[in-house]
Amino acid sequence: MRIQISSRTLHSDFVKKVAEISGQDLLACNQCGKCSAGCPMCFAMDLLPNQVIRLAQLGLEEDIAASKTVWLCASCFTCTVRCPRGVDLGRVMEAIRLITLRKNVDYVEASDIPRDTIGELPQIALVSGFRKHTA
C-alpha cells in the first residue's frame, strides 16, 4: 500500500504537538544520520532516531507509535550535542513518549518488575525509569 502524504499529514495535530512539546523545529533536520551513527541504544532500536524524525516530518504517527525507538532512548543527549542542525533529539523523543503516556498508556508495568530487582536497583534508576516510561 502506498503511504498517503498531503499537507494534512504534514501539518497534523501530531506534528504540531511534537513541535510544541519538544520546542524543536523538526524541519531543521536534514537527515544526515549523525544522531543514529552515535546513538548508544541504536543496537536495540527498530527505527533509527533520524528515521523517527523523518516520520515525524511526514506526520506518520502510526509508524512512530508502532516503533520501540523512543522508549529505548536513554536521554544521554549524545545526539543532541552532535546534531549539526541543532535539533535537540532528546526533547523530540520525550515529546513523542509523552504523547503516548498522556493517553495513560504505560511502557513499563511496575508490577512486572521482580521484587528483588526493585530492592537492588538504585533509587535514581527506578524513579527515572518510571518518569520516562509511565504516565
Binding site: G33, K34, C35, A37, G38, L48
Partner: peptide, 27 residues
C-alpha cells in the same frame, strides 16, 4: 549515506561509527 559520529583507535585499526540512512542501519 550518512554522517560519521565518532572515530577512534582500536588496536591497529581505526573504528568509524557512521550510519547508512538509506538502509536505516548503523554502521
Amino acid at each position: 549515506r550518512g554522517r560519521v559520529s565518532k572515530v577512534f583507535r582500536d588496536g591497529d585499526k581505526l573504528k568509524v561509527w557512521g550510519a547508512d540512512t538509506l538502509t536505516g542501519k548503523r554502521i
